[in-house]
Computed example of a mutant assay.
Amino acid sequence: MTTLLQIQSSLFSTDGQSSQLSNAFVSAWQRNQPDSQIKVRDLALSPLPHLDAERVTAFLAPEESRTAMQQQLVKLSDNLINELKQSDILVIGVPMYNFGIPSTLKAYFDHIARAGVTFRYTEHGPEGLLAGKKAYIFATRGGQYAGTALDTQTAYVRDFLSFLGITDVEFIYAEGLNMSADVKEKALVEAKVKLAALAA
């Protein structure tokens, strides 16, 4: 049985265009593979705390010497990592806010990047420990940025996932959504055609 972990990062939750596209993909996937298991984490409905010194110190402390408070802080990260480890496919809806990813998604990334848990440093450099997974990224933008210097999202998300060992990453773009009604409609139609083919 294939397990999909769907991460929604739109501030508008299921009303966001990135959420709607990733929902369409997951629905199509379920129709084609009805035995799949779907897990959804909506970062607008259940936002994660951003990193602070106390939380990072807890992550770095040896397990046997953590205080009760540190254990509680690490438990949230452990739960997120276990959820990801148990998934075969990662589906992320990523709107562009001020040329970057939503801060809620950055907080999620910060909680799942743990040395010795999801990656490790070796004499040959860092090694991701989450190999063998596939990721689909539904990137929505008000303007048109793919392939330009202003698209900071694609390289960042690809590099971050690769750092954890997830190197099979597919981007599906819907751009120009704030430019005109015609451009928006064309972009969404094209994205839906592509996602349907990927889910087949």
Results as ranks from 00 to 15, higher is better:
Q72M: 02
F12E: 04
V94G: 05
V189E: 14
S36D: 03
D159C: 10
A28N: 14
A135H: 08
Y121C: 00
I89A: 09
W29K: 08
T118P: 01
E170S: 04
L73C: 00
L76S: 10
G100D: 15
L195I: 13
S36F: 10
G143H: 06
A68M: 06
D35F: 10
K75D: 01
P34C: 08
N23Q: 15
P49L: 06
L150D: 14
E54K: 04
Q37C: 12
V56A: 09
T3I: 01
A155K: 13
K192G: 04
L90W: 09
F163G: 02
E63M: 09
A68H: 03
L105T: 00
N82S: 12
V193P: 08
D168W: 09
A200E: 15
Y156P: 01
Y145H: 13
A53Y: 12
A61W: 10
Y173M: 13
L43E: 01
S19G: 09
I101M: 13
A24C: 10
L129P: 06
D88Q: 04
N79C: 03
T104Q: 02
V94E: 06
V40K: 10
K85R: 15
G100W: 12
Q70I: 03
H50D: 07
Y108H: 08
P34R: 11
K39A: 07
S19W: 09
F163K: 08
W29A: 14
T154Y: 07
A61F: 12
L4S: 06
L60T: 06
F163T: 04
A197M: 10
A191M: 12
L198D: 02
V91E: 11
V94F: 08
Q8E: 15
E170K: 07
G100P: 14
E83L: 04
V74C: 04
V56E: 12
I7A: 02
I166E: 01
S65D: 03
T104I: 05
E54T: 03
A187T: 05
P47D: 00
